[in-house]
Design a protein around this nucleic acid. Sequence first.
DNA 1: TGCCATGTTAAACT
DNA 2: GAGTTTAACATGGC
Length: 258
Amino acid sequence: MVCLINYRRIMPEGPSIIILKELILPFKGKKILDATGNASIEMDRLKNKKILDIRSWGKQLFLVLDKITVRIHFLLFGSYSLHEQVKPDKSVRLCLKFKNGTVYFYTCSVRILEENIDSLYDWSADVMSDKWNPGKARKKLKDHPQLMACDALLDQQIFSGVGNIIKNEVLYRIYLHPETRIQHIPPRKLTELINEARNYSFDFLKWKKEYVLKKHWLVHTKKICKRCELPVIKKYCGITKRRTFFCVNCQRLYPSNV
DNA sequence: TGCCATGTTAAACT
DNA sequence: GAGTTTAACATGGC
């Protein structure tokens, strides 16, 4: 067992936020003794406040205090460390000191939300959540018949927490071409899409915890298809224009002419 | 060394 | 105003 408590990691997709949430669980119920950093928030509003709850929605982390909530989003380059600071002071965006430890956040978006966060987010859209509702996801997909599968998976209102890696792996797993439009996906295939968005996210979580995530990528960043050994296509697909890896031989484009 | 990426927002355009 | 494009953020792996 390797102790990685001081280790900084980059963050982006939903499962990584779950890992962080678990790591900082010891701070739940604890008082913030000091809050520092270059985030453009009033640090005084955090000082001497208790962390009432630690929650997440997709790629966002929430530290719930009395009346306000600190929202942290790691964007593309965000990272954190626990207990031990590994970067020079000025790069620390937010540092929270507790009696039982310290957490540091880097290169992330930090905001204070005044509203009750329950009314701000659709918690049933979070693929990692107990409140995840596949039926509701299906309904939302039906409302966007023109949307390509690759764009739908990245839509945080439908699949909160899904990122580009998960997108590519899910589509490969279910043999679906990224540019297939929702209206053309057969019902059973659509069910697979919705279910795999959640399933793969939990596999991602498990592998990430064991530091073997990359090893399990089937198509993301790959050059050759593991199934048919034909070249994997790399294309910036859909309205999101994100890197998409897929096999035209194995992943079916609907409607199909064949 | 330079390019590019697990992401999102907001300004700058048409 | 709407929809679309671009910039900004600013780290680290290859």
